[in-house]
Computed example of a mutant assay.
Amino acid sequence: MQLAASSGLLSLGMFVVGIAVVALLAGSFWLGARIKLREPPRPRPDEQPHLPPDGPVHEVRENREPDEVPVMPKDGRALTPYELTNMQTRTSASKTRPRWSRGSSGSFGGGGLGAH
């Protein structure tokens, strides 16, 4: 019966926990306000980015092809990744767009029927 009886100490503990939570929330709002005051002000409308004088930039469509990987001589040692250059791409001479096989989605696991 004594465990079920209300205790003044338990209610005092809950009150202290509630006050601590409110103090923590108030402190977080105060800290957020201080951080916001240190930030630079928002840009004015005249400081916003504008379109270039010749209008919006348009998309350029071109085919790219990779640089060739160096060919190894038959008796030479294999090149390590550190000896290869950063593989760049260049503009392709071909203007036709590459296409996937008919009936394929073009990606692995894309849900297409695949080439039959």
Rank of each mutant, 00 (worst) to 15 (best):
M1E: 09
L3G: 01
L3H: 10
A5C: 06
S6A: 14
S6T: 13
S6N: 12
S7A: 11
S7D: 12
S11C: 11
L12E: 11
L12V: 04
M14I: 13
F15T: 12
F15S: 14
G18F: 09
I19H: 04
A26M: 06
A26E: 06
F29W: 05
F29P: 00
L31A: 05
A33K: 12
R34V: 02
R38I: 07
E39R: 12
P40I: 05
P40R: 05
P40K: 13
R42E: 10
R42W: 05
P43L: 15
R44E: 14
P45A: 08
P45N: 10
D46L: 04
E47A: 15
P49I: 08
P49C: 07
P52W: 04
P52Y: 08
P53V: 13
D54F: 09
H58S: 13
R61I: 15
R64C: 11
E65V: 15
D67M: 05
E68R: 08
V69F: 09
P73Y: 01
P73W: 01
G76S: 11
G76L: 00
T80N: 07
T80F: 04
T85N: 06
N86E: 10
N86M: 12
M87S: 07
Q88F: 04
T89V: 14
S101P: 05
R102D: 09
S104C: 15
S104T: 15
S105P: 01
G106D: 04
S107I: 02
F108W: 10
G110I: 00
G110R: 01
G111T: 02
A115T: 15
